[in-house]
Design a protein around this nucleic acid. Structure first.
Lengths: 210, 210
DNA sequence: GTTTTCATGTAACCCGTTACATGATTCA
DNA sequence: TGAATCATGTAACGGGTTACATGAAAAC
């Protein structure tokens, strides 16, 4: 149980945790938050919502009584809301930090909800991804060294671009990890020693201007 | 007909065009050439080979004719080789330049075989991908402008990293396109005006040292 | 009053994955 | 001799896409 991964499922629960929404809006938020990483269509979303409803993790509510239009509340929209069980389940998902959370599929979504994730789990995921990417860099380097002559310029160019992309992400992760460590140290200092580890919501990013 | 996309199929045909191989080696080449972009397992590869064989696009050959091969021994089980039909079909696939060739899935493989692709098709694919990415940049920018306040630092950082990644690929594409144009112009000049357009194998990349 | 966007679905399909299973060869 | 790698498969499943279908509200 609880082993059905489903990037979409996590994303839906995570977004609904912020606030209740209806399907259409959910999908937009989904594709804007996750941006380049994944794009879901209605064909995936609505069945997923049905499923989550059936499992009691979310509820379907007919549209809210419109304050501007008191009479004859239009019920066309269906607003989905996390149940208590849903919150619990989400928290359980966010507590996991296996390979699924740092592979290409999955990492983006997990990262997007780092704000709801325990600091130690965040760290494990970041480090997991980094070492995953480092493996990949290694493989790339090996491939470049191996094929050096036989391969045409296009393949070569593709591999170089790939390598640089991965290296870039590694640097990004390094910054993030350093940032997390810094924030950890700071909050430890501030709180004397009585700090509790499970604190949520703390964000220790470089914080350049938006 | 010929509408079954299949990244894997194209990759297999493309690799077998270079030289015949057996499955295991094919898979390694696959994952080294395509590197970060995709990773196939045997569970996909062998059924695909079966299918291609059934369609007469490749042939299965049992081990090499001469058993006396002590040095450089590569005694393998089943060697797959492109048939004439297979070559034709590959060429047909490489002639197409629809969305499938510039979406995330597909572009990498198409690019890897640009050496076998007509110059005009290459250009259409590069430009197609660029405009696809530019749409995405636009979407990102809009998202960043829209959510500016409501979103936590992690989501923001994710979006920024995503945006930068895409912008980086756009720059890469710009270089490639410029390079192709340059090469086009050069070969036109060299050949007077009698140049034929369908020339293959010309590669006009920046050509820094390997 | 017509087009666009919002909004909700469904059914079929597809490409590939996961997990499993097996044996042959090479290397320590 | 035993472990690692090479080498070839298969069955079941799965998460998501595509294409289709529908209708209400908003914008023009």
């Amino acid at each position: 149980m609880s082993q059905r991964a489903g990037v979409l499922e996590l994303a839906v629960l995570g977004l609904l945790h912020e606030n209740p929404m209806h399907g259409y809006e959910l999908r937009k938020r989904l594709n804007s938050v996750l941006g380049a990483f994944r794009a879901f269509g209605y064909g995936s979303l609505y069945p997923c919502l049905k499923d989550l409803t059936a499992r009691g993790l979310i509820t379907e509510e007919s549209g809210p009584p419109d304050p501007a239009k008191p009479l004859a509340g239009r019920r066309s929209k269906i607003v989905y809301r996390l149940t208590a069980d849903g919150k619990e389940y989400l928290q359980e998902l966010l507590g996991q930090s296996g390979p699924a959370s740092w592979e290409d599929d999955g990492f983006g979504v997990r990262f997007a909800f780092f704000g709801l994730t325990r600091a130690d789990v965040r760290m494990r995921i970041l480090e997991g991804r980094r070492s995953r990417l480092e493996e990949r860099v290694e493989a790339f380097r090996a491939a470049l060294a191996r094929t050096r002559e036989r391969v045409d310029s296009y393949t070569l160019e593709l591999q170089k671009h790939g390598l640089e992309s991965v290296e870039r992400e590694v640097r990004w992760l390094n910054e993030l990890i350093a940032s997390e460590r810094r924030a950890d140290a700071e909050s430890a200092a501030e709180l004397g020693d009585a700090r509790e580890d499970g604190a949520q919501g703390r964000v220790g990013l470089p914080r350049r201007e938006i």
